[in-house]
């Protein structure tokens, strides 16, 4: 009888090896890409051909199908970064660093898109591109935080050391975002109340909810796909940097 002496590894520690992580998650990329594309095709078809114009907002309701998913992603990506920051600080998980770095520019982009579509939605419905109201203002502040984090990543030479420092800042930001949201809401009370998720259930008709949910998942999967791809690139970039450093040392010796 042979005794299995190989240490039992959980998936958690197995994906901690960057090369293993890339090898394990590479087969996921194509299915994710196809799923995203299919969701976008269905969502766009619903959004343009199979949903009625809203009786109040008219056809401008169609902007909602790109605005709401981006607004959701602007917060979801920060959530991903916060969880990754905890992974970096608490478990020193190497993939958490990579995930944090890959997510930051994506989050900034989705937040910018949320603001852009929000402005284009606001012009016909409220008559102004920009209103200093609670939700738009706190999204703008969130964009500033994202851009600060991206700038911080670019400022550091040593990416391993940068990860822990940026994780601290990401967590400080995560604690602050609800406070910022609260203060901005207090500061300005002019806005329509949230109407998708209300305590008494959604008030929108199903014909509008269907494209909204399909687009919502399409954008979420778009983020997941891009995030995974960017993480693979980041792993490779670190290997490039390591090799370059070793070659430089070899040349010097």
């Amino acid at each position: 009888m042979s005794i299995d002496t190989t240490p039992k590894q959980s998936w958690w520690s197995r994906i901690a090896h960057p090369g293993q992580f890339v090898a394990w998650t590479s087969p996921l990329l194509w299915p994710l890409t196809i799923l995203t594309a299919v969701l976008f095709i269905i969502g766009l078809w619903f959004a343009f051909f199979n949903s009625p114009a809203d009786y109040q907002m008219g056809d401008t309701v169609r902007i909602m199908y790109v605005h709401v998913p981006n607004a959701w992603l602007s917060q979801f990506v920060y959530g991903v970064m916060t969880v990754s920051a905890l992974g970096t600080l608490v478990w020193r998980h190497p993939m958490a660093d990579v995930s944090m770095k890959a997510a930051a520019p994506l989050g900034a982009m989705f937040t910018a898109l949320a603001l852009f579509t929000g402005a284009l939605w606001g012009r016909p419905t409220w008559g102004t591109f920009w209103e200093w109201d609670g939700r738009m203002t706190s999204t703008l502040v969130l964009l500033f935080i994202y851009l600060g984090i991206v700038a911080l990543w670019r400022a550091f030479d040593d990416q391993l050391r940068a990860a822990r420092i940026i994780a601290v800042f990401t967590l400080v930001g995560a604690i602050n975002i609800p406070i910022i949201k609260f203060s901005v809401d207090w500061w300005s009370t002019l806005h329509q109340p949230a109407s998708v998720f209300r305590a008494d259930g959604p008030t929108m008709p199903g014909s509008i909810l269907t494209p909204l949910f399909v687009m919502f998942f399409a954008f979420t999967f778009l983020f997941l796909t891009l995030h995974l791809k960017a993480m693979h690139t980041e792993v490779k970039r670190r290997r490039v940097m390591g090799l370059q450093r070793r070659m430089a040392q070899g040349d010097a010796a």
């Binding site: 550091f156 800042f169 930001g173």
Partner: peptide, 25 residues
């Protein structure tokens, strides 16, 4: 956060400004 960055004096205000908004409000 910026102490170990050379010339990090410029990046600190960018990081702090969004956090300070509730204080100003």
């Amino acid at each position: 956060v910026t102490v170990s960055i050379r010339g990090g004096g410029l990046i600190a205000p960018i990081l702090i400004a969004p956090l300070s908004i509730p204080v100003l409000i």
